[in-house]
């Protein structure tokens, strides 16, 4: 019985963490290649709106999810064109992407406000899913959660076990030297940005198709920004992004329970906790490594224009 309660809590924590894992992993890859994309929030919410609209139109959750990823990818392509192709300022371009994404999501989602949809189907394996204590956690999730977990492993493997991953990290640390070696700096950066966009869009699709599951304006509520903070918090390592997202998901669930229990604390304080916790985490992290130097990719946020 208590085991089932533990499982129930873990399931909700994992659900709250999934969009952060997806968006955080994507941003991690982009930042490892040296591009800081602050448009995660915009790509995420645009992905949420497009995925919901598409799923309502076609009746297919899969098409909706793909559409969400595609929407994030499309915005990321714009960002890549600006920052990688035209060497525009990454911070400002990312902000423009967030504003654009918020606006576009409102346009796309306008006709779908207040409509609820069945959540994405959960895996059900007779026998396994009903296992007490662990069945639902391991064998009863939806495809988004499994995708997120698989992506953690895949991104870790790619960045540290493949030649292409090594190239990507090297480009993020020193685009000038890697360019001199004949590596395709701008192509790799552009592809990394696209991957980041698709992941953010998929994270948004998860919110609209599985987590809530409906569309409402501004529904990402800063999750894109929290994903950005997670990447810093995780020192640009995929496993730590997942761990951080789970911690964060745990805090969110705790906050919801505290709100329901009514501890006499003002609701606004509880709602502010995720944001305060993010600041605190960033502060503690930098306190912990006063003498270690920064772990960020060395060329993060700096534009690169190949010289002849």
């Amino acid at each position: 019985m208590t085991l089932d309660i533990v499982q129930m809590v873990l399931v909700t924590v994992l659900a709250a963490a999934t969009p952060l894992i997806l968006a955080g992993l994507g941003e991690l890859v982009a930042e490892r290649s040296g591009v800081l994309n602050l448009g995660v929030e915009g790509m995420m919410i645009f992905g949420a709106a497009v995925s919901f609209a598409l799923a309502m139109q076609t009746g297919s959750t899969l098409l909706g999810a793909l559409g969400g990823a595609g929407a994030g990818l499309g915005l990321a392509a714009l960002f890549g064109l600006l920052t990688v192709g035209l060497a525009a300022n990454q911070v400002a371009s990312g902000l423009s992407l967030t504003i654009l994404g918020l606006g576009l999501s409102g346009l796309v989602g306008a006709n779908y406000v207040g409509i609820k949809r069945d959540p994405a189907p959960h895996l059900a394996i007779p026998g396994l899913t009903d296992l007490p204590g662990i069945g639902r956690l391991l064998f009863g999730q939806d495809a988004f959660v499994y995708t997120a977990v698989a992506l953690v492993a895949a991104v870790s493997w790619f960045l540290w076990r493949t030649r292409a991953g090594l190239t990507l990290r090297a480009i993020g640390d020193d685009p000038v030297a890697t360019h001199a070696l004949g590596l395709k700096v701008r192509r790799v950066r552009f592809l990394s940005v696209l991957f980041g966009g698709a992941c953010a869009g998929l994270g948004g699709a998860y919110l609209a198709l599985a987590y809530t599951p409906f569309w409402s304006p501004g529904m990402t509520a800063g999750r894109g920004w929290i994903a950005l903070a997670l990447v810093v918090f995780a020192s640009w390592r995929p496993l730590r992004v997942a761990a951080g997202a789970l911690l964060f998901g745990g805090a969110t669930v705790l906050q919801l329970h505290a709100q329901a229990a009514g501890l006499g604390l003002p609701g606004q304080l509880l709602s502010a906790l995720p944001y305060l916790a993010t600041i605190l985490a960033l502060v503690l992290l930098s306190l912990g490594r006063r003498q270690g130097g920064s772990l960020a990719p060395a060329a993060l946020g700096r534009v690169f224009t190949p010289s002849r």
Partner: peptide, 28 residues
């Protein structure tokens, strides 16, 4: 016309301004 159109327009405008800036700084 939805208000979000204005916001999307403003985001687009910022992106285009940043992109156009490149032509002022570089020969493309």
């Amino acid at each position: 016309l939805p208000l979000d159109l204005t916001r999307a327009f403003q985001g687009l405008l910022l992106g285009l301004v940043l992109g156009a800036d490149v032509f002022a700084r570089y020969h493309v």
